[in-house]
Amino acid sequence: MAAYIIAQINIADRETYSKYEARFMDAFTRFGGRLLSVDENVHVLEGDWSYTRTVLAEFPSKPAALEWYDCHEYQALAAFRHAASVSNVVLLDAFAANPG
């Protein structure tokens, strides 16, 4: 079953963050990741949304997403993101529709 990552990011240092962006896709796609949305101008329908970037990503499964997130290559790369921004990142299971 598919799994989704939602990241809410406040980028403070675009130059350092660009080092994260430059190599992100290489590590991400090796684990079956697919970017569904990267948006810096979301349309807020309710509540507050004070993030400079919102990301929605899909993986073929929760284990694949965790394997990507925990891999040495991504964690080394994530150090640039951590240095340049503050983030909330969650992993969600896909909704399993009830056939009846």
Rank of each mutant, 00 (worst) to 15 (best):
N10F: 02
V38Q: 09
N88K: 12
W49Q: 11
G32L: 09
A64G: 03
S85Q: 05
V44R: 10
Y4K: 03
W49H: 13
A94S: 14
L35N: 11
Y20W: 11
W49L: 10
F28D: 06
A76W: 04
F24I: 06
I11L: 10
A84Q: 06
A7V: 09
H82C: 01
A22H: 08
R81A: 13
S37N: 13
T54I: 09
R34E: 15
K62A: 15
T29G: 00
Y51G: 00
A64F: 03
D93Y: 07
W49F: 12
E21H: 02
W49I: 00
N98T: 11
F80V: 07
F31N: 03
L77G: 07
A94Y: 01
E15H: 10
R53K: 02
A83N: 09
A64V: 03
P60M: 08
E40C: 11
S50W: 00
Q8W: 06
T16N: 07
V89H: 01
W68R: 09
I6N: 04
I6T: 10
A96M: 08
V38G: 06
N98H: 13
A22E: 11
L66S: 02
A96R: 12
Y17S: 04
Y4A: 02
P60H: 06
L36H: 05
N10M: 01
A12D: 13
M25K: 13
A96C: 07
M1Y: 06
N41S: 15
Q75S: 13
S85K: 06
Y51E: 11
P60E: 12
G33S: 09
F80H: 15
W68F: 15
R30Y: 02
V42D: 02
E67V: 08
Y4F: 15
N10D: 15
T29F: 01
Q8Y: 12
L56M: 12
E67R: 15
V38H: 05
L45H: 10
S61Y: 04
E46F: 11
R53P: 00
V89L: 15
A97Y: 08
S87N: 11
S50E: 10
V55Y: 03
R23F: 07
K19E: 14
E40A: 10
S37F: 00
V42E: 05
A27V: 14
S18C: 01
R34I: 12
L35T: 13
G47V: 09
C71T: 14
F80E: 10
I9R: 05
G33V: 07
